[in-house]
Structure formats: C-alpha cells, structure tokens
Amino acid sequence: MSDAAVVLCRGLTKTYRDFWGRATFPALRGIDVAVRRGESFALLGPNGSGKTTTLRILLGLLRPTAGEARLFGLPPTEPAARARVGFLPEESALHGFLTCAETLDLHARLHGVPRGERRARAAELLARVRLDDAAKKRVHELSHGMRRRLALAVALVGRPELLVLDEPTAGMDPLVREEILALFREHVTRGGTLLVTSHLLGDIRGIASRAALLANGVVAREGDLGEMLRREGLRRYVVRGGAEADAAVAQAVQRVGGEVVESGPARMGIEELFLDTYRTPGGGAPS
C-alpha cells in the first residue's frame, strides 16, 4: 500500500451511534484500501456492506471511529483535498429551484473556477451530458435521467483528478448508461482516477480494473477485477455456424483432452436488444 496513493484507507472503522452516543451499527470494521493514480477501482458488495459509508468518510461527510482515510495524502476534511475530487452521489439531490446552468455555476464557484471560465465550462459540460437544450430548465423540472446527467456534470465541473461515483448508473436506461459509462472511460483515458460503487456489476466490469469486495464492513476480496472474474480451467469461444457445428467442435475439444461444458445459440443481452432498437443510425440516442 503506497503513501502516494490517491485514496488511502488504513484500518478504517465506523460505528454509527444514536442520539445518546450509544453504538448502534458497525458499518466498517477496519478496511484497508488503496487506489493509485490513473486506476479505476470498484467497491462492491451487497446493501449494508459499507460501500457508501466508505465513500462518505472519503468525502468528509462522516468521521471514522478509528483508522484513517487520506485523499491525495490529506485528511478528507481539508477542502484542498476535496478540490481535486468530483462526487456523483447515489441520488442526484440537487437544489430544485436552480436551473441547470445555475447549478453548474454554483458548483464551479464552490470549486474555485475563475469567473471568466465558468460560463464556457458550464456550456461545455451541458453539451457533454446532452443537456444543452435544458440549460434554463429548473432542476425540479428534469426527468430522473436528466438529473443524473446534470449531477455528473456537477461532478466534472472542477476538472477533478479523482471521480467518486456512488451507484452511478442506478435508475438509468441503457442508452443513457452507455453514454455515462463512456464519459467515465474518457476520464480514465485522460489519466484521471475513478472510485466507483455499484450494484450493477455488468457496468462495473466495463469501467473498473481493480475491485474490493466488501462484506459486513470488511474487505472480503481485493484484486484485479479480470483476474477475480476468471473461471479457472474454463475457456469461452463463440463459433459462427449452426447446430451442426456442435458435434465437430466437441470432437475437436475432446482431441486435446478437453470437454465442452455448455453450448447453445449465442444470444444478445436484453440491454443490447434495447440499444439496437433505440439507438439512431447516426450513433446518437433519442432524448
């Protein structure tokens, strides 16, 4: 574990307490996580495993009961540390009375973006999340998907080095999700770092290279996501041909000492079907 890590948790422990200070629920029990620069890291786990608590400690919204958390080597309570972070919360609860442009302007100001750059940056981000036509719409008038896209623009407004995403694609239709995931990949391609939690493991596979699996507040497994997902001793092929090819393939596999465990017609996922149906020929999606 490196001290130069963008995100560092050492023995991070969090026990929630009630109004009288009595311990109620141990959310984290000494987790160690390090995220290096340029890495995309996923925190995975079922509900109540401690993912959101970890993110909130890293954003200074919660204080750890024990252990320490560091962002760029600084405590998360330091605004200077958070200035390098963009945060997409699980629910995009922005101020409903502001317009999209005003929301971005507010967060640009909070991130210290100079006055002269704010308008251009807001316009650029609204275009990137395809909300340029809704710049003057108030947040409470937006659909759920539009709010998620605006929240992502808010997360990106400070040109962050680290993007922290809590369930980033929850509640999005596959068209919007594809676009959002593309933005995350672009962030990593540009050298940014990504820390993401999600229940939608298919989405994580597309953007995260390393992951930690949390269970009851401890890290159950951690490592390269591709390695962890590999099924030892099994290979996967997709063969062009009809059912008549099954016997030939099985014979060929048996000749080298293997065994066909499963075969059948290749099917697209229901999301691919959705994308195939609704994606316009020019590559854009209907809004």
Partner: peptide
Amino acid sequence: LDVRGGAARALLAAPVS
C-alpha cells in the same frame, strides 16, 4: 432541508469549508 433532500451531500463534499 438540504440534509433531508440530499443536496447537503454535494454542498459539503465540495471544497468549501
């Protein structure tokens, strides 16, 4: 209201003391 509605998360996670 910000805390209950969730807007406080974005506000307090921003680099503002």
